[in-house]
Design a protein around this nucleic acid. Structure first.
Lengths: 210, 210
DNA sequence: CTTTTTCTGTTGCAAAAGCAACAAATTATT
DNA sequence: AATAATTTGTTGCTTTTGCAACAGAAAAAG
């Protein structure tokens, strides 16, 4: 995520700040939080990476969002209307800060410097979430697996400023992220290679066009 | 959109407030704004309804978002990475307020009451956008046209608190909103009727399950 | 270092979705 | 009120995607 204020510096100064903020560590595959209850939680990932995953009634798994350092997540962002399970799962060892959203908006405001600063930059924080989600929607509205793949590769490519990059997750996960069948996606990857659009070795992709 | 503060009252008191805010009226099919240039615009729809529409290179049209009274939109919410055209088009006569986002965050803050109030409620405003987009993503990640239709109908149904409702747009537009082929969607609607899931007369839908 | 588990790559077949085209119905326009 | 434009409903055919199943590769666990 693209945050305009200096999250690192901000987080570094956290320790001797507000006692209401909890910092927890999770190991691989642990569930960081679930979006079932209404806790109005806002979480920030300090290290590691994690996925927001939905399991639907047909047994499909969807990676709704992928989080890396300094990304924000939590129920504040999600009006849980669905009866599907929504979990944030650690992909590797993760450190996470837990806030209560109401504390950022109200209570702590006047007395706690930490929450006050966070409140100050809250619009930017949430706004970067919005732009992220809009990019995700643009991907998902592409009509074919091919266009979804190319769209995704373009995003990653421009993020790393390089035509060549490693995918941030496994191909199995990529299929769940693009919301398509894995084997169909593998087939399309092969075709993209054959048609000279990309090169692919393991999960390293090189774009050959433009 | 679900805003927690009283947008109506807020808008009503606008007239004798800040001269930087522009109010414009658009007639049906007019382009309210385009997301090509970087103007950092934030718009609020006071009346009417409009769509954020994307036209891609394959000639597909996608309704990215649908806006009705008091919904917010504009480039602030969208990091335009794509080379596709992104337009907000009026579906009927629309009144729209135009803000510059920076004015809300910085300049006007101390002296203009209107911007000050808006800044105050900005996190809530943006947050409701986030939850909207998340619902949209949930729809788009459904694997079949049937599930997309049912998911969408559930949303509308719970919004109107009724199993029976009129669709807020035409079936042609619904297909563009769900990002599927229109004729395939029509076929699926027929099947949903035949299978006893829904009843349908024109664009009035009645849910027959649960 | 060996075993177990997960991930990758592939395929044949079935199902779903897209495309194209058209007539009928509805809605706008003059 | 007549004409034009758009939307709805339908269908045959084609293409794409999904499903199931499996073998080999790679990664994780013991």
């Amino acid at each position: 995520m693209n945050i305009t204020f200096d999250m690192k510096k901000f987080i570094d100064n956290f320790e001797n700040s507000c006692h209401k903020v909890q910092k927890k560590t999770f190991s691989k595959n642990e569930v960081i939080t679930s979006y079932i209850e209404k806790r109005n939680q806002l979480c920030i990932l300090i290290s590691g990476n994690a996925d927001l995953v939905r399991y639907d009634l047909n047994g499909n798994r969807t990676i709704v969002e992928h989080f890396s350092q300094y990304d924000a997540f939590g129920e504040v962002f999600y009006a849980v209307t669905t009866n599907n399970e929504l979990l944030v799962e650690a992909r590797e060892k993760c450190e996470v800060l837990f806030y209560i959203y109401d504390d950022i908006r109200n209570k702590c405001r006047s007395n706690c410097k930490f929450h006050q600063m966070l409140a100050e930059d809250l619009p930017e924080l949430i706004l970067s979430k919005v732009t992220d989600l809009n990019m995700r929607i643009e991907l998902l509205t592409k009509r074919s697996i091919r266009d979804k793949l190319l769209g995704y590769f373009n995003l990653v490519s421009s993020r790393y400023l390089s035509k060549s990059f490693s995918l941030p997750f496994s191909l199995t996960d990529l299929a769940d992220y693009l919301s398509v069948d894995r084997s169909a996606m593998m087939r399309e990857l092969k075709l993209l290679k054959e048609d000279g659009f990309i090169d692919k070795t393991g999960n390293r992709i090189t774009l050959l066009y433009k």
